[in-house]
Amino acid sequence: MLQIRGLDVYYGKLHILKKVSLHVNKGEIVALLGANGAGKSTLLNTLIGLIVNQGGEILYQGQYIHTLPPEKRVALGITLVPEGKGIFKPLTVEENLILGSYSWYSFRKAKLLKETLEEVYTLFPMLKIRRKQLAGTLSGGQQQILAIARALMSKPSLLLLDEPSMGLAPNLIKEIFQYIQKLKRELKLSILLVEQNARSALSIADRAYILETGKILFEGDAPTIAGHPEVQRAYLGRDIDADVPL
């Protein structure tokens, strides 16, 4: 469904992504792991069109999209939940969700908007209770759920998640990852998940890529990647807590 071939991205003279190729099949969760500054967020921002790639191509559902502006890519069904959530804090929870439907909304689709809103509320009942609350007053975990729910409002087929676990307590991280699995199972979404929290990400992913200083280092099935000694040492901290089961 998504195929990236030889992607090159520069910030000025800095070569951030070096000939990166990866693909996401329909209905699978792909984890993109790597340390700080490896270029993970840059890759997602390039996929959604906030950053323009200087080389390579992005193929989505058989269509080249790397020349399209962000709004066209969103309309095609790609949605990014950015790092730091990017919710509109001064607006209410419901307004945030409604804005999520901007890409397909028209006056005649007001009814569909109501239905979609209800579907999302059934998925995340917490948001329905707090729908009149200002989004900025939600806790960190709730804001992350809101950000994901808002992304669902755009009716995406490919969801890009940038560090959904960032800044959250361990029990909340678990909850968020359960939600992500649920999205794959129930909505048949394809998900590209960028994470520093490699352990959690690998536990729900089908396949994984390791990105290091702008290059794909390893790729493979999640269990293979998790078992790779180099990955264990660098990303899963096996040297330090070797007896903790994965």
């Binding site: 906030l50 969103v74 949605t79 950015p82 804005l99 901007y102």
Partner: peptide, 8 residues
């Protein structure tokens, strides 16, 4: 930036 991500 977030507005752009909504397709605005």
């Amino acid at each position: 930036v977030s507005a752009k991500l909504m397709g605005i």
